[in-house]
């Protein structure tokens, strides 16, 4: 109860209306502004929120659909802008791995020029899972309608498929690029709008039922999320 006793009745009622979400948009915005500078008002609001929350047992828990969790994680964790210290740490590990595999990338470029003659990637992504059990390299050449991949390490679980996802630059919603074929190296065909979105985009891999996600959104765990870099 501390802190809220020194506000007047009108404000106390106003805080209650705000807690119930009864204020119109303008009043609500004005109250939000006041909350920033008035600790007593924040305390009053907290009291109301706690009081009203005792009615929350009437909100019956209902299990959300299974695919939603993977979708949320996929969409959140693909963002390139870490907002937490640990995420920054995570990205620095990413960068370390990226430099470690830069050598591999050079080898790869050699491979491309040897094996595919005219393929010379302009964008690459080295997708390494945190536990380093899976390492898939993806390369793309501007103007192409396919994505080259090399599976350096890792296999897909029995009856499972690895699905590749693309977040176009600045987008938080991923589009499926399809299932990554089981072979060691190959190509994944790209629709024109996906090919155009490779530059500046981010790739992710999720573990899906055989044949890929049945819903069009990631349903299984997201194994790795890697920004695509320009060569």
């Amino acid at each position: 109860m501390s802190g809220s006793t020194d506000i007047d009745k009108d404000d106390f009622a106003l805080a209650g209306e705000y807690a119930l979400h009864l204020l119109d948009a303008d009043e609500r915005a004005a109250f939000d502004q006041r909350l920033l500078n008035e600790p007593a008002l924040r305390a009053a609001l907290r009291e109301w929120d706690e009081d009203f929350a005792t009615m929350a047992d009437e909100f019956e828990p209902i299990t959300p659909p299974e695919h939603l969790k993977a979708k949320i994680e996929l969409e959140m964790f693909a963002a390139n802008t870490p907002s937490h210290g640990v995420s920054a740490h995570f990205w620095s590990i990413r960068r370390f791995i990226a430099s470690a595999v830069a050598v591999a990338a050079l080898v790869m470029i050699g491979f491309y020029s040897y094996n595919l003659n005219r393929f010379s990637p302009t964008q690459v992504a080295d997708m390494v899972t945190a536990d380093e059990t899976l390492f898939i390299h993806a390369g793309y050449q501007a103007g192409d309608d396919e994505l080259h991949f090399i599976r350096h390490k890792g296999t897909t679980g029995e009856g499972r498929s690895l699905e590749l996802w693309l977040f176009p630059a600045g987008e938080s919603v991923a589009v499926s690029l399809g299932v990554i074929p089981e072979q060691e190296r190959g190509v994944i065909p790209l629709a024109a709008e996906h090919a155009a979105a490779i530059k500046g985009g981010t790739l992710a891999i999720s573990d899906e039922p055989l044949g890929g996600s049945p819903t069009g959104q990631a349903t299984g765990p997201v194994l790795v999320v890697t920004p695509i870099t320009d060569l």
């Binding site: 009437e58 909100f59 019956e60 828990p61 299990t63 959300p64 907002s83 937490h84 210290g85």
Partner: peptide, 24 residues
Amino acid sequence: IGDRNAFSLLYDATSAKLFGVCLR
């Protein structure tokens, strides 16, 4: 502090209740 594993556990522990709120 950005712990994704904790996020996953928190989702498992609370998503049904919070989904119930949204649905109601």
